[in-house]
Design a protein around this nucleic acid. Structure first.
Lengths: 190, 190
DNA sequence: TAGAGCATGTAATAGGTTACATGATTAG
DNA sequence: CTAATCATGTAACCTATTACATGCTCTA
């Protein structure tokens, strides 16, 4: 039972209303960027496939001066398939943390190199935290009465919790690394 | 400049001392499992390639009653390549959080379904936290005087920080969802 | 006039897992 | 007797990104 998550991610977006592949991409970038993304190379073939399997319908909206829009809409069968997937318990996430991998082998490079690396990581994370806050504001402003909003804000919260954890960890780790640096100086001074 | 991270992950393990593909797999499982993993399908071809590129040497240790061991050792060239990779600033991590994806579309299923999902997620995370704690104890006991230990414990701390963030988020989210359930009951009761 | 936005899509390539094949030994 | 551990490796498969191709309009 191989479940292609991209397929369900796309069906999920489609559950918010009929739209084109182009729209779907923008939705991912606007509201889900900090925990999910899909490329056109995935989106267009999957949409084609959804139509073939009867999980979505496709209609063409002609436009002048712009390319035609291929609008996809979830069918009842598609919505049922999405719901079935949604109630399956999630698997454990196996993230590949480059920063942890590099730090794990920290002994191979200088203390200064490790410090630089963690500082850079910290900067990335605080940037990301800002982006998540921006997403939160946009969601609150644009979808005040949308019944989905409660759920969307829950995912935003998760991003914030995790990101703050990264920031606190970075600070702690930098303190330890800088302490080691000091020790080294003292030792060399004796 | 395409950098294959698996290659460097394996070189990193090799930086701890010469060993076989089998050993490498075990190392990943024992000490890096919560933030990195590699399958045999990656390890063996990459090892072959490292040898071909002069980044590692290969020697065969014959054993009786057991298959021969192919021992790989990092060369100076290999160590330098590893160090060069290690000082490159890390990229942003684009985790795909299945739980957040499902919750984002939470409106599509019942409140009870969402609660069940988050409860299950919480269970997975507290299990993982236990595993990280176990890893910490093993590292401390087995490698008391290993100069790598400081770095290893930093990665462990990160796992703990993030995991506790997930647990706190789960609790908050479950409280909100249960509150919504209550509201629903009151409304239905009127 | 260059670049961004609109809009579709494909092909090449990279990255990664799973299942399979082999075969002896040892522990339950 | 069964399952796990030791140990190597490959082939089939799935997943995902990137670059490319097309071509119009609007803005700086």
């Amino acid at each position: 039972m191989k479940e292609n998550k991209s397929k369900y991610a796309i069906m999920g977006i489609l559950s918010m209303g009929p739209m084109s592949g182009y729209d779907i991409k923008k939705r991912f970038e606007k509201s889900l960027a900090y925990f999910w993304s899909e490329s056109y190379g995935q989106i267009y073939p999957i949409l084609k496939n959804l139509a073939k399997q009867g999980l979505a319908t496709r209609s063409i909206k002609k436009q002048e001066g712009k390319p035609d829009r291929h609008i996809y809409a979830l069918t009842d069968k598609g919505r049922k398939a999405l719901q079935e997937w949604m109630i399956q318990p999630v698997g454990r996430l196996i993230g590949r943390h480059e920063i942890l991998l590099k730090l794990f082998f920290g002994q191979q490079v200088s203390l200064a190199d490790n410090i630089r690396q963690v500082e850079h990581f910290r900067k990335l994370q605080s940037q990301k935290l800002k982006e998540i806050k921006a997403t939160e504001e946009v969601l609150k402003a644009d979808h005040k009465d949308n019944p989905n909003l409660t759920y969307w804000l829950m995912t935003v919260r998760c991003g914030q919790y995790v990101n703050r954890a990264y920031l606190r960890w970075s600070d702690e780790t930098l303190a330890v690394l800088r302490g080691m640096e000091q020790e080294g100086v003292i030792k060399n001074g004796n």
